[in-house]
């Protein structure tokens, strides 16, 4: 059963990683994806909105799919919402397994899926006061599509 959190607060990547290996000796590797807010083009902040209820359900469902496809010993997905500054972490995906391939592949699967199928929306705020909604990217759709039917 994956640990899924949607929260305003920052998270502690070290503590979350340690929790996946604490008290067990069957873990051979933990893969980490840490998404960070980039400060391109004078970005002052990123504001993330989501669909409370659907978000948690949708992430839990896809984490369960990852656990069914790969032999994982643990899985953690934490996605922040609200106002996030450049340089701050946005999303954390951790997957633990006896062997690296399962951990690395399932981690990539989860973040590709989160980009295209989880109900989050990003709005960029710029230093001059302008703001704009981030548009979905075709590259993200293509990245997620490679996991279909695999």
């Amino acid at each position: 059963m994956a640990r899924v959190l949607v929260q305003d607060a920052a998270f502690d990547t070290g503590a979350e990683t340690a929790a996946l290996t604490a008290g067990r000796t069957d873990v051979g590797g933990v893969a980490t994806f840490l998404g960070v807010c980039r400060g391109d083009d004078g970005l002052a902040a990123m504001v993330l909105e989501h669909y409370p209820g659907m978000t948690e359900r949708a992430i839990a469902r896809i984490a369960a799919e990852a656990e069914a496809r790969w032999p994982l010993t643990g899985c953690t997905v934490i996605h922040r919402v609200g106002r996030i500054l450049p340089g701050e972490p946005i999303v954390l995906v951790l997957t633990a397994s006896a062997h690296r391939a399962a951990a690395l592949e399932s981690c990539a699967f989860l973040i590709d899926w989160l980009k295209t199928k989880a109900p989050f929306w990003k709005r960029e705020e710029f230093s001059g006061g302008a703001h704009r909604w981030v548009e979905a990217r075709a590259e993200d759709e293509a990245a997620a599509a490679r996991w279909a039917g695999a």
Partner: peptide, 10 residues
């Protein structure tokens, strides 16, 4: 029923 733009999380 919810309506929204294509998602942009992650």
């Amino acid at each position: 029923v919810a309506f929204f733009p294509p998602v942009t999380g992650g």
